[in-house]
């Protein structure tokens, strides 16, 4: 039995219908565990006070923001090479989730940054990179919306995702270069892992797994919706022809 069997829409609908409640339930469970543990059962940081606890949302969201784009890249490649419709529909379904994760990352970053750095926003390389990623998500979704024919849209958005990925990576390094070029040795560091001790790390890992499961659950739901709407289209077309 090959893994590609699940790329068949019928098979996918069956399997995902079975898996969805489990994934969703597990996501809710881990999210509650991770967040409650992180928010209420960890000590305040001696430097940052209770503001540190926002990392239980901030870091998982940021990880999912970039992770989603990589998932979309993989799904687009599978579509372009193997022409599996479910794959490209999953990429389409993931984009709004990734966008939301990026926004959550940016907002929680701003809320955290305000008391820490005294500013809501700094053109720190990492912040800037996420802002650029947000723009890429917008473009990708706008292209999907703009094109009428679903297969044309799938092809074009996949090509955009491919080219966009290359340019997003170049942008990441360009931004690093640009910022150092402006103010040498920036003192702002968003690198959470640097000052995370074990007390904070365990709930953080649970929260990251929870966000990951939440992502899978949302993408499954959205992909199922996309497949249904495609089927609706086909049924309507048949109605018109008959």
């Amino acid at each position: 039995m090959s893994i590609w069997e699940y790329a068949n829409p019928k098979k996918f609908m069956q399997t995902s219908a079975w898996a969805l409640p489990w994934v969703t339930g597990l996501a809710v469970l881990t999210l509650i565990t991770g967040l409650v543990w992180g928010f209420f059962f960890t000590p305040d940081d001696f430097r940052m006070g209770s503001t540190v606890k926002i990392i239980y949302i901030h870091v998982p969201a940021a990880i999912m923001a970039t992770g989603t784009w990589f998932m979309m890249l993989a799904a687009s490649l599978i579509w372009l090479i193997r022409r599996h419709h479910v794959s490209v529909l999953a990429a389409k379904a993931a984009a709004p989730v990734g966008t939301t994760m990026t926004l959550i990352g940016l907002f929680t970053g701003a809320i955290w940054g305000q008391p820490m750095w005294g500013t809501w926003w700094a053109w720190d390389p990492r912040l800037t990179a996420f802002l650029i990623l947000f723009l890429f998500y917008l473009g990708y979704m706008a292209l999907w919306e703009a094109i009428e024919d679903p297969d044309t849209a799938a092809d074009l958005t996949s090509v955009l995702c491919l080219v966009g990925s290359v340019f997003a990576i170049i942008s990441r390094y360009a931004v690093l270069f640009w910022n150092q070029g402006l103010h040498q040795g920036s003192s702002l560091s968003m690198d959470a892992e640097e000052h995370v001790s074990d007390v904070y790390a365990w709930p953080l890992w649970v929260a990251i797994v929870g966000f990951g499961l939440l992502f899978v659950s949302l993408v499954l739901i959205r992909t199922r919706t996309e497949i249904r709407s495609r089927r609706l289209r086909a049924l309507e077309a048949r109605e018109r022809m008959a």
């Binding site: 829409p9 019928k10 497949i227 495609r230 089927r231 289209r233 086909a234 008959a242």
Partner: peptide, 14 residues
């Protein structure tokens, strides 16, 4: 001819 796939299948849209 209108699609021959059995009604109710999710394949027919693709």
């Amino acid at each position: 001819a209108p699609s021959a796939a059995a009604p109710g299948g999710f394949d027919e849209a693709f």
